[in-house]
Simulated assay, not measured.
Amino acid sequence: AGARGGSALAPLGIGLGIFVITGAIVDLVERSGVARVPFRTALHRTRGLPRSVWGTAFAHAGLGIALLGIVCETTWNSELISTLRPGDVRNLAGYEIKFDGMTQRQGPNFTEVVSTFIVSEEGRQLSVMTPSKRSFATRGMSTTEAALMTRGVSQLYVSLGDTTADGGLAVRIYHKPLVLLIWFGPVLMAFGGLLSLSDRRLRVGAPRPARAARALQPAE
């Protein structure tokens, strides 16, 4: 089974994100005067802009980037839940995911079953993903190790479920487009904040202590 999200508010969110990013760029362009003065002069002005101006621009751009990531990830994320057998192929978000089989290996204190998935796009292999399940006999518990493929700022996840009586394997696959923008945006915002704080013009320092008066010379 497959699922795909959608929202009529997505264009509004994307437009708002682009507007914020564009506003930050336009502010830098106006301050540099690139449209009114020669390029070299504008470049010199841009280099001389206060750190607070650059910090504000980075912070606003980071906000817009994070907004784009949130809208795209929540609106166009894809999910596939299926039972696969070796050789089966499923398609999700333009990717072909082939289940290539399972192997078992022994760890220090656990038994691990590793599943192999070959991810291709238009007949070209992109990655081999190997999620696994670990069983700890002494603890009487098991854990699942999901596999992750990052391509650009989007990510594909493969997580394993239980095996069926007829030899099938329950698999859950997620595709999250532009999800890394959700993390990159706040990092850029934090960088902009630090850059603004480093601007000496915005520092409010304590007054320097007055110099101690010279010691009185003993009377002659």
Rank of each mutant, 00 (worst) to 15 (best):
A66S: 15
P209N: 12
Y157W: 11
L43T: 14
V114P: 08
E122D: 08
G185Q: 01
L194N: 01
A8K: 15
G193Y: 11
V179E: 05
A210C: 00
E121I: 04
T163I: 09
I182W: 05
A61E: 00
L92Q: 12
R90I: 04
Q106I: 06
T111P: 05
D162H: 13
T163A: 05
I182L: 03
A219F: 14
A24M: 00
G55S: 03
L68A: 02
A165R: 10
P209D: 08
P186A: 02
T130M: 01
L180M: 13
R40P: 00
R134D: 00
V153H: 10
V89A: 10
V204S: 08
R45Y: 06
G69C: 12
F110S: 09
I70S: 11
F110E: 04
A137I: 03
S32M: 07
T41M: 14
L68E: 01
G87N: 03
R201K: 13
I81H: 07
L169V: 09
V29Q: 02
T56K: 08
T75G: 03
G167F: 12
S7L: 12
G205P: 07
F19G: 07
I21P: 00
G87Q: 08
G140K: 01
A147R: 02
S135D: 08
L126Y: 03
L43F: 14
P218N: 10
L49M: 12
P177Q: 08
P108D: 15
G33N: 11
Y95W: 12
E220G: 11
R200T: 07
S78I: 02
V113C: 03
V26N: 06
P131S: 15
R139A: 09
L148S: 10
F19K: 11
G185V: 12
R172M: 04
G5D: 10
M189W: 09
D100C: 04
T150D: 15
T111M: 13
L156W: 02
W54H: 13
L178S: 02
R151A: 10
I21G: 05
P11L: 05
E121V: 09
G64W: 05
